[in-house]
Design a protein around this nucleic acid. Structure first.
Lengths: 340, 340
DNA sequence: CTGAAAGCGCTTACAG
DNA sequence: CTGAAAGCGCTTACAG
C-alpha cells in the first residue's frame, strides 16, 4: 500500500495553506491567478487525488446514490441503469446497486443506506415493497430523497418516473381493433404489481369503450416472465371460443406465448395476433418480430436521476415535477396482422 | 435533515467511552458482558447507525468494490452482478457500477477509483481496454486489487475468472460432428476481443483434429450481437457450398442468425443446425429452443467477488488461485439435429 | 476490561 | 485573497 499524497503535501509544495488548496480545487474563482498556478503545479508534482472518504465525512455527503432493483438478474433494467449512471457521473456521483431481496434478507433496513451515510438518495425500481417497508421509508427523515422509477407505490407520495401505461395499453388495444380484431385477450403481469393493475384496468376500460365483449377467461394471469407466457398459451389453447388477438403485459410474456404456441403448430400472426409491452431489444429479432409498446428506458433512467439529483442538491426548494410520465409509442412489426 | 445519533450519543447513554462503544460493536468478545448489554441497550434507545463515511476515513477502507462493465445496457452481465453482489453484501461491502466508456470519457482514470478512496478493489468485465489503460493499471500501486472476469487481458498478469472457452468450443464442434455434420461454419465475436480469438482458435484447432475441411469463408466475422448474427446469415446464404452446421460465438449471434434465415424461409435445424454460446435465459424460449454451451454466470460473479475480497482483506498473503477457469456444459435443444 | 487522546484528510466559518 | 483552527464521526495503539 503506497502512500498517496494529501492536501497537506500539496500545500507544502505550493507553499500555501491547506485551506487555500481546498479552495483552489473546489472553487478556483475565489483565489488569485498566481495561487491557482502554484497549486495546480503542486497537484501535478505530487499526483494528488482527493480522498473522497475524507470529503464525504466533512461535507456530510456520500456522493453516491443507491439504485434498488427487485432482481439484479433481470435484463429489463440494464438500459435504465445506463441512463441513471450517465446523469450521476456527470455530477460526480457514484452509482451503488443492490437488490431489495438482498438488502432485506441481510437484516438491513432500506433506510440504513441513507442513515449510515452510504447514499445521499435512492432510486427504487421495485413497486413490490412490503407495506411496512414503505411505511418506514415514508416516515424516514430522509424520505425526500427517495424516488420511484418504472413502478411506484399506490397511496404513497414519493416522486416517481414512469411511462404512460394507460395510454400505451389503449394504443395497443386500438391497434388490434383497427386490424379488425373483436375478441381480444390480455395476459397480465403478477398479481399485486402496480403495472399489472394499471395495464389490466386500462385494458378493460378500453374494451368497454369499444363495446367489445370480454369474457372473464380472456384475462389470463401471468407475471411478466417467459414461463408465464408459455402457460398463458396453454390456457389460450384450451379456450372454446379463442380470442383472435392477445395483448401481453410484457414482451417476455409475448415471447413465451408465441414460443409455446409454435410447439402446438399455431402460427403467429396467422392463427392469432400477439403483442407485447416494453419493446426490449430482442423484440425486433424475435420470430416473428414482435409488435410492442415502446418505453424509452434510457430516458426513464435519466429523468429519474435528474429529479433525484435536484432533490439532493437543493433539498429545500420546491420541485415542480413530482411525477414524470414519459411517452410510449406503438411499434408495429409482424406478430400482429389483419383479421381475415 | 434530521440529526442522527453518533457514537458519542451512545457512549453518553451507556455511560462508557466512545472507545468502548466502538469495541462493543466491532469486537464484542473483548468487552464485559454487562458493558455489552448496556451498550446494545443504548444503541437501541438512540437508534444509532454507524456513519460509514467516518469509519471509511478512519480505517482507510471504502468498503466498496467497483464493477466495470463495457456497457451497462448489455443484459449478459446482469446475472454476474447478482453473483458479485451476493458475496460483497455478505462481507458488508457495497457494489459500485460504472461503464468503461463513461469513466474514460469523463476524463477520470480507472485508477482514480482506487486512489481517491472510492473503492477498495475492482472487477473488470471488459477485456477491451486500451493498452495504455492496461499499462496504467499494471503500474498502479493498487494493481493487486484489480481482477478480471469473463474476459481478460492477454499478456497482463491480473488474476481472473473465466469459463472454459476452449473446452466449450471443442464440445460444441464435437456435438455437431456427432450429429454427422462435416461442413461446419463459425460466426465469431468482435475482432480484437479475447473471447473471440480464444473460441475461434479452439474452433480451428478442433476442426483440424477431426480432419474436417475449413474454407476461409466459413469463418464469418461477427461481434456477439443480434444484428451481426443477421448479417452472418446473409453471408451464409450467399455461399456456394453451404456448411450444414454453424457454431456461433454467442447466443445473441445465433438468434440473429436464425431470425434472419427464417425471413428467407430456411428452417433450423432442417436446413442448417445452429448453436450458440453462453446459454442466456432466452435460449430456452427461442424458436427453436437453442442448443448452447452453458456458462454459470452466477458462479463467475461469486468466484470473482470471493477472489477479490481475499485480496482486499489479506493483501499480503499469497493467494493460491490466480486464474479460476469454470466449467461449461453442453445444453442440447432443438436448433441442432442429425444431418440426413 | 476500559478510557483518554490522537488522528484519518478533508472543508469552512471566522478573522484579517 | 489567505491562513489558523475547529471539527466531521469514527478506530486504535497505548497506558492502566
Amino acid at each position: 500500500m503506497v502512500k498517496t499524497s494529501t492536501l497537506q503535501d500539496v500545500a507544502r509544495v505550493a507553499k500555501v495553506s491547506t485551506a487555500t488548496v481546498s479552495r483552489t480545487l473546489s472553487n478556483p474563482d475565489v483565489v488569485s491567478e498566481s495561487t491557482r498556478r502554484r497549486v495546480s503545479e503542486a497537484v501535478k508534482v505530487t499526483g494528488y487525488r482527493i480522498n473522497r472518504a475524507a470529503r464525504n465525512l466533512r461535507t456530510q455527503r456520500s456522493h453516491s446514490v443507491l439504485v434498488l432493483l427487485p432482481d439484479l438478474a433481470n435484463p429489463f433494467f440494464s438500459t435504465i441503469l445506463e441512463g441513471i449512471s450517465r446523469i450521476l457521473s456527470r455530477q460526480g456521483y457514484s452509482m451503488l446497486i443492490a437488490s431489495t431481496k438482498q438488502v432485506l434478507d441481510s437484516g438491513d433496513r432500506l433506510t440504513d443506506y441513507l442513515d449510515d451515510a452510504r447514499a445521499d438518495g435512492m432510486i427504487i425500481l421495485d413497486g413490490g415493497l412490503d407495506p411496512d417497508v414503505v411505511e418506514m421509508l415514508e416516515n424516514a427523515p430522509q424520505s425526500k430523497r427517495v424516488l420511484f422509477a418504472c413502478e411506484w407505490i399506490d397511496g404513497a407520495n414519493f416522486p416517481s418516473v414512469r411511462c404512460q401505461n394507460r395510454q400505451g395499453t389503449r394504443t395497443a388495444v386500438d391497434h388490434l381493433y383497427d386490424l379488425g380484431h373483436r375478441k381480444i385477450a390480455h395476459v397480465t403481469g403478477p398479481e399485486g404489481n402496480v403495472l399489472m393493475h394499471t395495464r389490466k384496468d386500462a385494458f378493460v376500460t378500453e374494451l368497454g369503450k369499444l363495446n367489445l365483449e370480454l369474457k372473464p377467461e380472456w384475462i389470463i394471469a401471468g407475471d411478466f416472465s417467459l414461463a408465464a407466457g408459455c402457460q398463458a398459451a396453454q390456457a389460450w389453447i384450451t379456450l372454446d371460443d379463442r380470442p383472435t388477438a392477445v395483448f401481453c403485459a410484457s414482451d417476455q410474456l409475448a415471447m413465451g406465448f408465441i414460443a409455446e404456441l409454435s410447439r402446438y403448430s399455431f402460427k403467429v400472426p396467422n392463427d392469432v395476433s400477439v403483442m407485447g409491452f416494453d419493446d426490449i431489444d430482442l423484440a425486433e429479432q424475435f420470430i416473428p418480430p414482435l409488435t410492442s409498446i415502446r418505453q424509452d428506458r434510457l430516458m426513464i433512467g435519466e429523468t429519474a436521476a435528474k429529479m433525484l439529483m435536484e432533490r439532493i442538491l437543493a433539498p429545500n426548494e420546491e420541485h415542480s415535477v413530482h411525477a414524470a410520465v414519459l411517452p410510449v409509442s406503438l411499434v408495429v412489426r409482424e406478430s400482429t396482422a389483419s383479421l381475415n
